[in-house]
């Protein structure tokens, strides 16, 4: 393939977009080494704030919780979301259209609504709020995102490769592991990555489902601002 250089205006435009996205973050990083606490005036270089951060056991605990929740909820949501996408691709059943549209509702509705409803739900079944409820909630809102991404990948999936696999002697299970999953893997991975990032920085839903004891990094950061 021949590689063409983009036009000058296109390069300038792209550069400005990158500046727009990353400059604020860059400034934040730079000022994290500033000796002054609040000012945005540069006073001098220091590692002091990082020392404080790593010695704050609350922050470290919140970080651990956040990673744990993100990891577990991503894993579970990816499995369930992928299965949902496969089922919607493969089968037609009564209530198909409803199942399909209902699956995506969590993507559309405001997070506050979802947070409050989850809180009400856990209160109703008298489930102790804590890390478990946060994780369950994250799984719930991650499933549709994974399903969406995997379904996009499944669009145009050639069913005949599964038939070819079975024709060559693989049963349904082997066919799934050796043929179906590797083929949709890029979709599954992007779904998982999306789920992981969504879980990492979720504030609203976590806020409602955290309960008194448990905290995550976003909750902790907001409480300190």
């Amino acid at each position: 393939m021949s590689e063409k250089k983009p036009a000058l205006w296109l390069r300038i435009f792209s550069f400005l977009v990158y500046v727009y996205i990353y400059l604020p973050i860059l400034i934040l990083i730079v000022f994290s080494f500033n000796t002054q606490k609040l000012n945005i005036r540069w006073e001098g270089f220091t590692f002091k704030w990082y020392e404080v951060l790593f010695n704050d056991s609350n922050v470290m605990l919140a970080t651990r919780n956040t990673l744990l929740i993100a990891f577990i909820s991503t894993l579970v949501a990816t499995v369930i979301g992928t299965m949902a996408a496969l089922a919607l691709q493969r089968y037609r059943f009564p209530g198909y259209a409803l199942t399909e549209s209902v699956l995506y509702i969590p993507v559309i509705i405001p997070e506050v609504v979802m947070g409050i409803s989850l809180l009400a739900f856990f209160a109703l079944i008298k489930f102790q709020l804590g890390l478990v409820t946060i994780t369950l909630s994250h799984i719930a809102f991650n499933i549709p995102f994974v399903a969406l991404v995997v379904r996009a990948r499944l669009h145009g999936f050639d069913k005949s490769i599964e038939e070819a696999s079975m024709d060559l002697g693989a049963n349904e299970l082997t066919t799934f592991w050796r043929v179906t999953l590797p083929t949709i893997m890029p979709g599954v991975l992007s779904g998982a990555m999306l789920a992981f990032t969504l879980s990492l920085d979720d504030y609203v839903i976590t806020y409602f489902t955290a309960g008194p004891g448990a905290t995550t990094l976003p909750l902790r950061v907001f409480s300190m601002v």
């Binding site: 050639d158 490769i161 070819a164 060559l168 083929t183 893997m185």
Partner: peptide, 14 residues
């Protein structure tokens, strides 16, 4: 004990 050659070939791309 039969095998098929598909019109779309159905090769495993991965």
């Amino acid at each position: 004990t039969v095998n098929t050659v598909f019109q779309s070939y159905a090769l495993f791309q991965h």
